[in-house]
Design a protein around this nucleic acid. Structure first.
Lengths: 209, 209, 209, 209
DNA sequence: TATGAATGAGACTTCATTCAT
DNA sequence: GATGAATGAAGTCTCATTCAT
C-alpha cells in the first residue's frame, strides 16, 4: 500500500513524517513550517524526507490526498448504510464535526492550506477533496429523487453551502481556544438548518411577505 | 493641489500600493508575492512601500482592516434601510455575492489569507472581519425577535454557517475560471436555504421520518 | 569663517548639524547613526545636511578637522605660556583630561571613529589629529634640549605612548557610567609617570636588578 | 578520521572562517566587511557561516573571545615564570609588541573594533580583554609589594596607561606601511618609560622645579 | 537506506542620497 | 536656501534541497 519511497519499515517512517507534517503545518501554517521542524519530531534526518516525498509541496499534497482519502473512504462507509437522504445527511454532518476531535490537525491543515495551495500549485487538482464534496452531492441527488429536497435544487451550489457552513464552523471551533460549543450539538443544528432549508414544501419567503 | 508626501499625493500612492497588493496577493498568495512584485504595478520603488507600511505583514493587515472596513460600512448602509430581518438577510447575501464582481481580488485575499494569517500573526485580531459577522448576528437577533427565525437559534453558529456557505460558494466561483453560475441567482438560492432553514414553524425532520 | 555651504544664518545651521552629529555619533557610533537621526535634533531636514556637507563621510571628517582644530588651537595657546617642558607637559595632560568634561562627545567620537575611519577612508589623513600629536612632540623635543628628558628619547614613540595612555584612560572614563576616578587626579598621576619615565638620570632598571 | 560537521572537519571550517574574518575585518573594518567577503577566502558558502555563528555580530564577538582567550592564556604562561614584577612587565610588553608580527590582523581588529563594539552591542562585556588587562594589574600589584613600584600607585589607572601606550604604538605601527621602528626596540623603550615612571624613589618633579 | 553539513539563490528591509517643489 | 518623499542599490540571513559518506 505504501505509495512512494522505501517499503517495509519505510512505510512506518513515511507515516511518521506525514503525522509530524500535519502537526507542524496545522500549528504554524505551510509557509512558516521548516522541513527540519517536521523531520525532528518525525525522528528522521532532513534528507530522509526527500526519500519519501519529492519536495515540500509534495509532502503537503500527499498529506491532502492520503489523509483526505482515508476520510473520504470512512465517511462513505458510514453514509452507505444510512437509509434515506436525510439520515445520511445527518450522518455526514455529524461525522464532519466529529473529525474535529479525531483529526483536529488534519482538518485545520485542509481548511487553511488547501485554499492557499491553489495559489502556488496551479496544476494541482484536489481530487480527494472533490470526492468528499461528491459524497454530499450523492446525498443531495438522492434526496431530490426521494422528494425530501427541492427538485430544482442546484446541487453544486448546495453542496458548497453545506461544506462551507461546516468548514467555517469547524474553523471557528479549532481556532478558538475556548471551545464555545459542543460539536455534536452544533452538528444537530446545522443538520436542521439544511434539512429544512433544502426541503421542497416550504412556502416562498422574502420580499413577498 | 495634489502635493507629495503622505498627505495629498501620498494618499494616492498608498492606495495604489494597496490595490496592487490586493491584485498580487490574490493571484499568488501572500507568501509567494514579493514586495518588488507589488511595487512595480503600484508604480513605486520597493523602498517606498516601507514609507507607508511597516513591513510586508503590515501591508496585509492594513489591507484587511481598511478594505474590509469599507466593505463593512457599505453593507451596513445597505442593510440599514432593509425593513425586516428577512429582506435584510437577502440584501446581505446579495451584497456578498455581488462583491465577487466588484471586489473579486479583495474577497479572494480575505478568504485565503485571513485564514493563513492566524498562523503567523498570532496577535492579530481581525476586527473588521468580526464586525462583518456581527452584521449577520444583528439580522439574526432581529429575526428571532420578529419571529421569522427560531427562538432557540444559536446565533453564533448560524452566522458562521451563513458566512461559511457564502464564502465557500464565492471561493469556488472565484477559483473556477468558467464561472458556472450567476452570482445573483446563487444569492437567491442561498437566501432561500437559510430563510427556510432558520424559520421557526417547520416540523422537525430527520430520524423521526 | 564659514567653510562650506551657505553663509550668514547658514553657519549657525552648520554648527547645529555638527553638534548633533557629535552627539549621535558618540552615542551610537558612525555606522549605526542615520543621517536622519542627526537632522532631527539639528532641527533641519535630511536634505539640508547635504547643503553643508558632501556626504556622511564628509560630515565625520569635517567634524574631526574642525572640532579637533579648535582643540589643537586651544591647547597650543594654553601650552604656549607654560614655561619649561615639564610644566607644559602637565598642562597638556591636564587639558586632555579636562576635555572629558568639556567635550565628552567629541573626545569619544575621535577615540572611537578616528580609528575606524582609517578602514573606510583610505585617502584621509587626519591632519588635525597629527597636529595634536605634534604638540606633544614639541614639548618632548624642548624637554630633551632642556635636559629634563633623555637625550636618546624616541620622540615619535613617546608621543604615541603619552597620547595612548591618555586616550585609553579617557575611553575607560567615558565608557564607564560610574566615573571611577577624578580626571584631575588622574591627570596628575599620568603626568608623574611620564615626567619620571622620560627623565634622563634614572639608573637602568630591569633584569639587572 | 576528519569527518564533516561541527565536529572533526567542522572545527577546521570554523577556524577557517575566523581566520578569514580577522583578515577582512582588519582590512576593511567590521561594518564595511560583507559576510560574503569572509565566506569566499574561508572557502565556504555564505550560508555556512551561519552554521557556526549566530550572525555577523556573533562572529565578531567569538573572534574577540576565542582569539583573545588564546592571547591571554599565552601571555599568562610567558609571564608566569618571569621572576619579579619588573622582568614580568618587560615580558608582557615585549610579548604585546611581538603580537604585532605574529597576529597583526587580530591585534588590529581588537584595537579598532573592540572600541566600536561598545556602541552597537551594549550588552557585550569583553571578558577576555579585561582578563588581559588583569595580567597587567597582577604585575603592578606584585611590584607594589616588591617595592619596585610606588605604594600609592593607582593600579586601575596605570594598567590603562600601559595598555593604552602599547595599543597606540601598535596601531601606529600597524597602520603605517613603512614600519618606522623595530617592535623589539620599541618594547624596550616603553618598558623603560614605565619601569622608571612607576618607580617609588624618584624625587617629585613638576611645579616645584 | 539514512544522514545532516553544506550550499546558494533569493527575499525583505534599510538608508544615504537626490531633486522637484 | 530648505524640504522630505522617493529612490534603488546592496546586505544579512533563511531554508529547501543536495550529496558525499
Amino acid at each position: 500500500m505504501a505509495r512512494r519511497g522505501p517499503r517495509g519499515g519505510g512505510a512506518v517512517k513515511r507515516e511518521r513524517i506525514l503525522r509530524a507534517a500535519i502537526r507542524i503545518f496545522s500549528q504554524k501554517g505551510y509557509f512558516n513550517s521548516k522541513v527540519s521542524e517536521i523531520a525532528r519530531p518525525a525522528g528522521v534526518a532532513d534528507g530522509t524526507i526527500y526519500l519519501y516525498f519529492k519536495n515540500k509541496d509534495d509532502l503537503l499534497i500527499s498529506l491532502f490526498e492520503e489523509k483526505m482519502g482515508e476520510v473520504v473512504a470512512d465517511v462513505r462507509a458510514r453514509v452507505a448504510d444510512g437509509g434515506g437522504a436525510l439520515p445520511r445527511l445527518r450522518i455526514f454532518i455529524r461525522n464532519h464535526m466529529d473529525l474535529l476531535t479525531r483529526e483536529a490537525g488534519l482538518i485545520e491543515v485542509i481548511q487553511v492550506e488547501l485554499r492557499q495551495s491553489n495559489k502556488f500549485m496551479k496544476e494541482y487538482v484536489p481530487v480527494k477533496f472533490l470526492e468528499y464534496l461528491d459524497v454530499i452531492s450523492g446525498i443531495l441527488e438522492d434526496g431530490k429523487r426521494e422528494g425530501v429536497f427541492r427538485s430544482d435544487l442546484n446541487v453544486t451550489l448546495a453542496r458548497r453551502a453545506i461544506f462551507g457552513a461546516l468548514d467555517e464552523i469547524s474553523l471557528a471551533y479549532v481556532l478558538s481556544r475556548k471551545r464555545k460549543y459542543d460539536p455534536a450539538a452544533a452538528a444537530e443544528e446545522v443538520y436542521r438548518i439544511f434539512a429544512e432549508g433544502l426541503a421542497p414544501h416550504a412556502t416562498k419567503k422574502g420580499e413577498d411577505e
